[in-house]
Design a protein around this nucleic acid. Structure first.
Length: 164
RNA sequence: AAGGCAGUUCGUUCUAUCGAUCCAUGCAAAUGGGUAGGAAAGUCCGGGCAACGCAGGGCGCCGCACUUCCUAACAGGAAGGAAAUUUCAUGACUUAGGUUAUGGGGUUGACAGAAAGUGUCACAGAGAGCUAUACCGCCCGUAAAGUUUACUUUGCAGGUAAGGGUGAAAAAGUGGGGUAAGAGCCCACUCGUUCUAGCGUGAGUUAGAAUUGGGACAAACCUUGCGGGUUGAAAGACCAAAUAUAUCCGGAUCAAAGGGCGGCCCGCUCAAUAGCUUGCUAGCCGGAAGGGUAGGUCGAUGGAGAUACGCCGUGAGGCAUAUCCAAGAUUAAUGAUAGAAAGCACGGCAAAACCGUGUCUACAGAACCCGGCUUACAGAACUGCCUUUUGU
RNA sequence: CGGGAUGUAGCGCAGCCCGGUAGCGCACUUGCAUGGGGUGCAAGGGGUCGUGAGUUCGAAUCUCGCCAUCCCGA
């Protein structure tokens, strides 16, 4: 039962704050594996709860069963993919992949006590299959776990640098 | 039956699992329902809507341009006119190739004005534009020479646009008369222009008369007529949050953000509320400038709305009645995966049925909303026309 | 979403307003000069003027429709 609940993708899981997005692309680190590109910004618990209340206008809290650990924004470049149909299709496939795989990222984040803002960008110039893209995503996710573990060890240093 | 052209319509469906968004019900959990196109595209026109501006007129700028109608409006559409082009039939001319006239059908287009003015017409050619132009040629006169004694050649002064040549284009065309040779110089027909009459709402058309008739380009400047206030949903209205008023302008206030003198810069001088460190700080309202915030609601989906039937109109379309509500996101939904079905193509067959195979099933994604235009589009169906073949 | 500009030889550009010959620099080829190379000099080749129509006797140029690229606007 709880397993099925993990596959949701509601508004609270999407990154909407302009402020955080600007910080993400300015000071977040990058994991790149063609045709995907991942911008990640690790956050503290206070920052993340503030982000959640900002997203909902009435200040209502997230009522899901599992605890949220990340917000994501999925994009496809207009320069790489000319047609709007292709851009929409790749974004939808990426969203489905993230929906099915996000619990693995959540467990990685929970093990080191971190929260994250993620920007997932499709930088390919042609369309791809769901299954091909899932393989690439797995590699990117494994890379991300190493980075999270590395960031958890010198915790104070990274936290200060993100503040500035 | 096949192919081509034009037009119209449609443009995949179902099931399972996991989701997204909106609406309704509900305290909640949840349940039920809706969810992309004909072009949503290009952003090429026209409107609605919003803010700001606005005495009236002129100039300028931009756009449009056969006629009548449709429309909220339009550079859109409908019907018509004239033209161009293509095809067929008939007639005439020609040795043939072909040319030309009339009529029918199809297609096409930003079809006002060149007799208001300016400009351009390369190269070639004698000459490229209001009574133009004489290179070759033709003709008259005259002078010289030659001789067959009425001709030839050359020069000079004229006439000539018929013939040659150049060019995209050479100053209406064809035929006849006329003449020294020629010429709309005269005549007939054709074309053009103007006028009159009939028909048509009108563009025009038909008939008659007059007329020598003054190229092309306005998608060159321009002229005439008509239209246009500017900006664009990032318009605009409101709520929340946040901040800092140094400075400048105007006003309110018992008073103060200054006044007076010399022509100006500038200098001198005088006056002023409260506080205290006695020369510094500080007060209200609106605007400019600067700073802060980066969230939400409305605008925003019931409309020049869709469907059906009836009437009017050649048609675009209009009127009346009935029924219906049919996407509404905002880091941006309308999906992903799997499996069937249907269509299509190919093969197994000569055909049908059936079976098998498949890198087949397009173009393409709302972003305030409508009316058009343009462009893209696998495949399917229907209608009209044309061509070819077969049968009667 | 709303504006604007550009497309010409392998590369960078001019010519377009006001129509008639497509040109400049670098690069390329050949020759000369040098013992050889560079440099220099001379000659030469190479362009559907992005694309499809229209106006015109004639279009890179004027007009319209498409295509591609780039730049602005919170």
């Amino acid at each position: 039962m709880e397993k099925l609940m993990q596959y949701t993708f509601s508004k609270d899981e999407r990154l909407c704050s302009e402020k955080i997005l600007a910080r993400l692309y300015e000071s977040g680190f990058v994991i790149s594996k063609y045709p995907l590109r991942l911008n990640v910004l690790l956050l503290t618990e206070e920052e993340f709860t503030e982000l959640l209340t900002l997203g909902s206008p009435t200040g209502t809290k997230y009522k899901g069963v599992i605890e949220l650990r990340a917000q994501i924004s999925i994009n496809a470049s207009k320069k790489r993919l000319k047609r709007a149909v292709m851009r929409n299709r790749m974004k939808r496939i990426l969203r489905e992949i993230y929906r099915h795989k996000k619990h693995q990222i959540y467990t990685d984040l929970a093990s080191s006590g971190k929260y994250a803002a993620i920007g997932l960008i499709y930088v390919g110039t042609s369309e791809m299959d769901y299954w091909e893209l899932e393989k690439v995503f797995d590699k990117v996710r494994r890379n991300l776990r190493e980075r999270i573990v590395a960031a958890a060890a010198p915790r104070a240093a990274t936290g200060n640098s993100l503040e500035g």
